[in-house]
Simulated assay, not measured.
Amino acid sequence: MYKRARKTPGLGNEKNVTLAFGNLISIYARQGFRTHEAVRYLQRSGMWDDLAEYYRRRGVDSGQFRQIVEQKLIERRLVGKAA
């Protein structure tokens, strides 16, 4: 008999975390959020712990994370995904 093992929080869900992060960034860009506002809302989101751990494992510090958020907001506005 096969039984699926329950995933532990934060492990094995990297794809879901990155997809949710991208979707939230698109929404924030559409709403005209600035970088500090987007980061603040991400910190209050239910996915913050997983997102922070995802970037921590890749050696990204908080300053670099802010730059990533800023760049993604700009990209979405320029490419038109936030229109």
Rank of each mutant, 00 (worst) to 15 (best):
R6D: 14
L19E: 15
Y2I: 13
L19N: 13
F65D: 04
G10K: 03
R4A: 09
D61P: 01
Q64R: 13
A5V: 05
N23E: 14
R57G: 03
A83F: 06
I68R: 04
R56P: 01
I68S: 07
N16R: 10
S26Y: 00
K15D: 15
R56Q: 11
T8R: 14
F21L: 13
Y54N: 13
V69G: 05
R30L: 07
R76V: 00
D50C: 05
K81P: 01
F33W: 04
N23H: 12
G80H: 01
G80Q: 07
I27L: 15
R34V: 09
S62A: 12
G63N: 15
P9V: 01
G22T: 03
A5G: 08
M1V: 00
V39H: 07
R56D: 11
Y2P: 04
L19I: 12
A20G: 00
Y41N: 14
M47H: 04
A52F: 05
Q67E: 15
A38W: 09
A38I: 06
L19C: 05
Y55T: 01
R66H: 09
G32M: 06
E14N: 12
E70R: 10
F33P: 04
L42W: 02
V17Y: 12
G32Q: 09
G59R: 14
F21Q: 10
V39F: 07
R34Q: 15
E53F: 03
N13V: 11
Y55S: 02
V17Q: 02
G12P: 01
L51Q: 05
T18D: 08
V39M: 12
I25E: 01
S62P: 00
Q71M: 12
A20I: 00
A5C: 01
K81A: 05
F65S: 10
T18S: 14
L42D: 08
A38F: 08
R66P: 00
D49G: 05
G46C: 02
G80M: 03
M47W: 00
Y2G: 05
W48Q: 06
S62Q: 12
T35H: 09
Y28R: 07
T35E: 10
L24N: 12
Y55C: 02
T18C: 03
F65K: 05
Y28K: 08
R58A: 08
I25R: 03
R30V: 01
Y55N: 04
D49V: 07
R30H: 13
Y28L: 12
T35N: 08
Q67G: 08
H36C: 06
A29E: 07
Q71A: 14
R40A: 15
M1E: 06
Q64T: 07
R30C: 08
N16K: 11
M47F: 07
R56S: 11
L11I: 12
S26D: 12
M47T: 02
Q64G: 09
G32C: 08
K81F: 06
R4L: 12
K3R: 11
A83K: 13
G12H: 01
R34H: 09
L42T: 08
R76I: 01
R44M: 13
Q31I: 05
I25Q: 00
T18F: 08
N16V: 06
R76S: 11
G46Y: 05
F65T: 08
Q31C: 03
G12E: 04
L73A: 09
N13H: 05
E70M: 04
